[in-house]
Protein backbone atom coordinates (compact mmCIF):
# COMPACT_ATOMS: atom_id res chain seq x y z
CA UNK A 1 0.00 0.00 0.00
CA UNK A 2 1.06 3.58 -0.56
CA UNK A 3 2.86 5.35 2.23
CA UNK A 4 0.30 8.16 2.12
CA UNK A 5 -2.37 6.27 4.00
CA UNK A 6 -3.56 8.08 7.14
CA UNK A 7 -1.95 6.65 10.26
CA UNK A 8 -4.28 5.31 12.94
CA UNK A 9 -3.42 4.84 16.59
CA UNK A 10 -5.55 3.25 19.31
CA UNK A 11 -4.76 4.06 22.95
CA UNK A 12 -5.84 2.62 26.24
CA UNK A 13 -6.22 4.44 29.55
CA UNK A 14 -8.22 3.29 32.60
CA UNK A 15 -10.72 0.98 30.99
CA UNK A 16 -11.75 -2.61 30.42
CA UNK A 17 -10.63 -2.85 26.74
CA UNK A 18 -14.21 -3.43 25.57
CA UNK A 19 -14.20 -0.49 23.17
CA UNK A 20 -10.94 -1.60 21.56
CA UNK A 21 -12.48 -5.05 21.26
CA UNK A 22 -15.39 -3.42 19.43
CA UNK A 23 -12.88 -2.29 16.82
CA UNK A 24 -11.48 -5.82 16.52
CA UNK A 25 -15.05 -7.06 16.41
CA UNK A 26 -15.54 -5.19 13.10
CA UNK A 27 -14.39 -8.43 11.48
CA UNK A 28 -15.23 -8.18 7.76
CA UNK A 29 -14.66 -4.42 7.84
CA UNK A 30 -11.22 -4.72 9.44
CA UNK A 31 -9.30 -5.68 6.29
CA UNK A 32 -10.91 -2.92 4.19
CA UNK A 33 -10.05 -0.55 7.04
CA UNK A 34 -6.45 -1.74 7.01
CA UNK A 35 -6.38 -0.95 3.28
CA UNK A 36 -7.38 2.63 3.94
CA UNK A 37 -5.32 3.42 7.03
CA UNK A 38 -1.99 2.33 8.36
CA UNK A 39 -2.69 0.86 11.76
CA UNK A 40 0.40 2.36 13.33
CA UNK A 41 -0.28 1.75 17.01
CA UNK A 42 -2.83 -0.71 18.37
CA UNK A 43 -1.40 -2.86 21.15
CA UNK A 44 -4.61 -4.83 21.54
CA UNK A 45 -4.10 -6.08 17.96
CA UNK A 46 -0.32 -6.06 17.46
CA UNK A 47 2.90 -5.40 19.35
CA UNK A 48 4.36 -4.02 16.14
CA UNK A 49 4.04 -0.31 16.86
CA UNK A 50 5.16 2.72 14.92
CA UNK A 51 6.14 6.17 16.21
CA UNK A 52 4.00 9.30 15.92
CA UNK A 53 2.72 11.60 14.67
CA UNK A 54 -0.64 9.99 13.96
CA UNK A 55 -3.49 11.25 11.78
CA UNK A 56 -6.26 9.73 13.90
CA UNK A 57 -6.02 8.65 17.51
CA UNK A 58 -8.83 6.66 19.10
CA UNK A 59 -8.60 6.93 22.87
CA UNK A 60 -10.23 4.46 25.24
CA UNK A 61 -10.31 4.89 29.00
CA UNK A 62 -10.38 7.62 31.59
CA UNK A 63 -7.70 9.62 33.36
CA UNK A 64 -7.16 7.93 36.72
CA UNK A 65 -3.43 8.32 37.48
CA UNK A 66 -0.81 11.05 37.26
CA UNK A 67 0.99 9.16 34.47
CA UNK A 68 -2.29 9.14 32.53
CA UNK A 69 -2.22 12.94 32.47
CA UNK A 70 1.30 13.08 31.10
CA UNK A 71 0.59 10.37 28.56
CA UNK A 72 -2.61 11.93 27.18
CA UNK A 73 -0.82 15.26 26.69
CA UNK A 74 1.88 13.54 24.70
CA UNK A 75 -0.70 11.63 22.62
CA UNK A 76 -2.61 14.84 21.97
CA UNK A 77 0.59 16.48 20.77
CA UNK A 78 1.24 13.55 18.43
CA UNK A 79 -2.33 13.37 17.01
CA UNK A 80 -3.88 15.43 14.26
CA UNK A 81 -7.40 14.27 15.19
CA UNK A 82 -8.21 12.80 18.60
CA UNK A 83 -11.46 10.91 19.14
CA UNK A 84 -12.41 9.50 22.52
CA UNK A 85 -14.35 6.24 22.52
CA UNK A 86 -16.59 4.88 25.23
CA UNK A 87 -18.05 5.85 28.57
CA UNK A 88 -14.68 5.83 30.39
CA UNK A 89 -13.05 8.24 27.96
CA UNK A 90 -16.10 10.48 27.58
CA UNK A 91 -17.56 10.43 31.11
CA UNK A 92 -15.17 8.77 33.54
CA UNK A 93 -16.62 5.25 33.29
CA UNK A 94 -17.53 2.87 36.06
CA UNK A 95 -14.34 3.82 37.91
CA UNK A 96 -15.73 7.34 38.35
CA UNK A 97 -17.98 5.82 41.04
CA UNK A 98 -15.21 6.83 43.43
CA UNK A 99 -15.49 10.50 42.51
CA UNK A 100 -18.25 11.27 44.96
CA UNK A 101 -16.60 9.28 47.79
CA UNK A 102 -13.62 9.26 50.08
CA UNK A 103 -10.91 7.78 47.88
CA UNK A 104 -8.47 6.91 50.66
CA UNK A 105 -11.15 5.02 52.51
CA UNK A 106 -12.18 3.13 49.37
CA UNK A 107 -8.56 2.28 48.61
CA UNK A 108 -8.03 0.87 52.08
CA UNK A 109 -11.17 -1.27 51.84
CA UNK A 110 -10.50 -2.65 48.36
CA UNK A 111 -6.75 -3.33 48.36
CA UNK A 112 -4.71 -5.43 50.76
CA UNK A 113 -1.73 -3.07 50.35
CA UNK A 114 -3.33 0.31 49.58
CA UNK A 115 0.06 2.04 49.63
CA UNK A 116 0.88 0.29 46.34
CA UNK A 117 -1.99 2.05 44.60
CA UNK A 118 -0.82 5.28 43.03
CA UNK A 119 -4.04 6.68 41.61
CA UNK A 120 -5.83 9.99 41.45
CA UNK A 121 -8.80 10.51 43.73
CA UNK A 122 -11.02 10.93 40.67
CA UNK A 123 -11.54 9.27 37.31
CA UNK A 124 -12.20 11.92 34.68
CA UNK A 125 -12.97 12.14 30.97
CA UNK A 126 -10.15 12.80 28.51
CA UNK A 127 -11.76 16.08 27.46
CA UNK A 128 -11.13 17.48 30.96
CA UNK A 129 -7.40 17.27 30.24
CA UNK A 130 -6.82 17.85 26.51
CA UNK A 131 -8.90 19.17 23.60
CA UNK A 132 -10.92 16.36 22.00
CA UNK A 133 -12.19 16.50 18.42
CA UNK A 134 -15.08 14.09 18.81
CA UNK A 135 -16.56 12.00 21.64
CA UNK A 136 -18.16 8.66 20.81
CA UNK A 137 -20.39 7.37 23.57
CA UNK A 138 -21.30 3.93 24.83
CA UNK A 139 -20.23 1.13 27.16
CA UNK A 140 -18.94 -0.24 24.96
CA UNK A 141 -19.18 1.88 21.83
CA UNK A 142 -21.38 0.63 19.02
CA UNK A 143 -19.57 -1.06 16.13
CA UNK A 144 -21.56 0.74 13.42
CA UNK A 145 -21.00 4.11 15.04
CA UNK A 146 -17.29 3.44 15.45
CA UNK A 147 -16.95 2.59 11.76
CA UNK A 148 -19.03 5.66 10.91
CA UNK A 149 -16.63 7.88 12.86
CA UNK A 150 -13.55 6.40 11.19
CA UNK A 151 -15.23 6.50 7.76
CA UNK A 152 -16.30 10.10 8.26
CA UNK A 153 -12.74 10.98 9.26
CA UNK A 154 -11.42 9.36 6.07
CA UNK A 155 -13.98 11.23 3.94
CA UNK A 156 -13.37 14.51 5.75
CA UNK A 157 -16.99 14.87 6.85
CA UNK A 158 -18.86 15.16 10.14
CA UNK A 159 -19.85 11.81 11.65
CA UNK A 160 -23.58 11.07 11.63
CA UNK A 161 -24.05 10.33 15.32
CA UNK A 162 -27.49 11.55 16.49
CA UNK A 163 -27.82 12.99 19.99
CA UNK A 164 -31.54 12.27 20.42
CA UNK A 165 -33.05 9.73 22.84
CA UNK A 166 -32.94 5.92 22.75
CA UNK A 167 -36.75 6.12 22.27
CA UNK A 168 -36.10 7.05 18.64
CA UNK A 169 -34.33 3.76 18.13
CA UNK A 170 -37.04 1.72 19.86
CA UNK A 171 -39.72 3.29 17.72
CA UNK A 172 -37.76 3.03 14.49
CA UNK A 173 -36.97 -0.60 15.23
CA UNK A 174 -40.53 -1.42 16.26
CA UNK A 175 -39.58 -2.31 19.83
CA UNK A 176 -42.56 -1.99 22.15
CA UNK A 177 -41.89 0.52 24.93
CA UNK A 178 -40.89 -1.47 28.03
CA UNK A 179 -41.90 1.36 30.35
CA UNK A 180 -45.36 2.02 28.94
CA UNK A 181 -46.28 -1.60 28.18
CA UNK A 182 -44.53 -3.45 31.02
CA UNK A 183 -43.82 -0.84 33.71
CA UNK A 184 -40.10 -1.53 33.44
CA UNK A 185 -37.87 1.34 34.62
CA UNK A 186 -35.91 2.68 31.65
CA UNK A 187 -33.46 5.55 31.16
CA UNK A 188 -34.13 5.57 27.40
CA UNK A 189 -35.98 8.91 27.35
CA UNK A 190 -32.93 10.74 28.76
CA UNK A 191 -30.18 8.62 27.20
CA UNK A 192 -28.46 9.21 23.89
CA UNK A 193 -29.24 6.84 21.04
CA UNK A 194 -26.54 4.80 19.32
CA UNK A 195 -26.89 1.28 20.69
CA UNK A 196 -29.79 0.44 18.38
CA UNK A 197 -32.09 0.02 21.42
CA UNK A 198 -30.18 -3.09 22.41
CA UNK A 199 -31.55 -3.61 25.94
CA UNK A 200 -35.21 -2.70 25.27
CA UNK A 201 -35.13 -5.08 22.28
CA UNK A 202 -34.53 -7.82 24.85
CA UNK A 203 -37.25 -6.54 27.17
CA UNK A 204 -34.81 -4.76 29.50
CA UNK A 205 -34.90 -1.12 30.49
CA UNK A 206 -32.10 1.10 29.21
CA UNK A 207 -29.47 1.69 31.89
CA UNK A 208 -28.01 4.74 30.28
CA UNK A 209 -24.62 3.48 29.13
CA UNK A 210 -24.53 5.97 26.24
CA UNK A 211 -24.85 8.89 28.65
CA UNK A 212 -27.26 11.81 28.52
CA UNK A 213 -29.01 12.75 25.29
CA UNK A 214 -28.92 16.39 24.20
CA UNK A 215 -30.82 18.54 26.70
CA UNK A 216 -32.31 15.70 28.79
CA UNK A 217 -35.16 16.39 31.21
CA UNK A 218 -34.06 14.03 33.99
CA UNK A 219 -36.25 15.87 36.49
CA UNK A 220 -39.34 14.83 34.50
CA UNK A 221 -38.23 11.19 34.47
CA UNK A 222 -37.75 10.98 38.23
CA UNK A 223 -41.46 10.58 39.19
CA UNK A 224 -41.81 7.88 36.53
CA UNK A 225 -38.82 5.90 37.81
CA UNK A 226 -40.28 6.15 41.31
CA UNK A 227 -43.70 5.02 40.06
CA UNK A 228 -42.04 2.02 38.40
CA UNK A 229 -40.62 1.02 41.76
CA UNK A 230 -37.07 2.39 41.76
CA UNK A 231 -35.99 3.71 45.15
CA UNK A 232 -34.29 7.12 45.10
CA UNK A 233 -30.90 5.74 46.07
CA UNK A 234 -31.18 3.29 43.19
CA UNK A 235 -32.04 6.11 40.79
CA UNK A 236 -28.83 7.80 41.90
CA UNK A 237 -26.94 4.54 41.33
CA UNK A 238 -28.46 4.14 37.88
CA UNK A 239 -27.25 7.55 36.81
CA UNK A 240 -23.81 6.98 38.34
CA UNK A 241 -23.09 3.55 36.89
CA UNK A 242 -21.34 4.28 33.58
CA UNK A 243 -21.37 8.01 33.06
CA UNK A 244 -20.99 9.44 36.54
CA UNK A 245 -18.98 12.42 35.27
CA UNK A 246 -21.47 13.38 32.56
CA UNK A 247 -22.85 16.61 34.05
CA UNK A 248 -26.53 15.91 33.32
CA UNK A 249 -26.37 12.46 34.90
CA UNK A 250 -24.28 13.68 37.83
CA UNK A 251 -26.90 16.33 38.59
CA UNK A 252 -29.73 13.82 38.20
CA UNK A 253 -28.00 11.43 40.59
CA UNK A 254 -27.51 14.17 43.12
CA UNK A 255 -31.12 15.31 42.84
CA UNK A 256 -32.45 11.77 43.27
CA UNK A 257 -30.08 11.11 46.14
CA UNK A 258 -31.24 14.15 48.08
Amino acid sequence: MSASRPRLAVWKFSSCDGCQLTLLDCEEDLLPLADQVEIAYFLEASRDTGPGPYDLSLVEGSIATRTDIERIREIRAQSRVLVTIGACATAGGVQALRNARDFDKLRSVVYARPEYIDALATSTPIAQHVPVDFELRGCPVDKRQLLEVVTAFLAGRKPDVPDHSVCFECKRRGVTCVTVAHGTPCLGPVTQAGCGALCPAFGRGCFGCFGPKADPNTRALLPLLRADGVADEDVARLYRTFNAEAPAFAEAAEEAGR
Binding site: S165, C167, P189, V190, P216
Partner: peptide
Protein backbone atom coordinates in the same frame (compact mmCIF):
# COMPACT_ATOMS: atom_id res chain seq x y z
CA UNK B 1 -42.28 21.57 29.22
CA UNK B 2 -41.46 20.87 32.87
CA UNK B 3 -43.04 17.42 32.44
CA UNK B 4 -42.01 16.74 28.83
CA UNK B 5 -39.04 14.42 28.35
CA UNK B 6 -38.55 15.65 24.74
CA UNK B 7 -37.98 11.96 23.98
CA UNK B 8 -39.91 12.17 20.70
CA UNK B 9 -42.22 9.20 21.36
Amino acid sequence: ASRCLTCGN
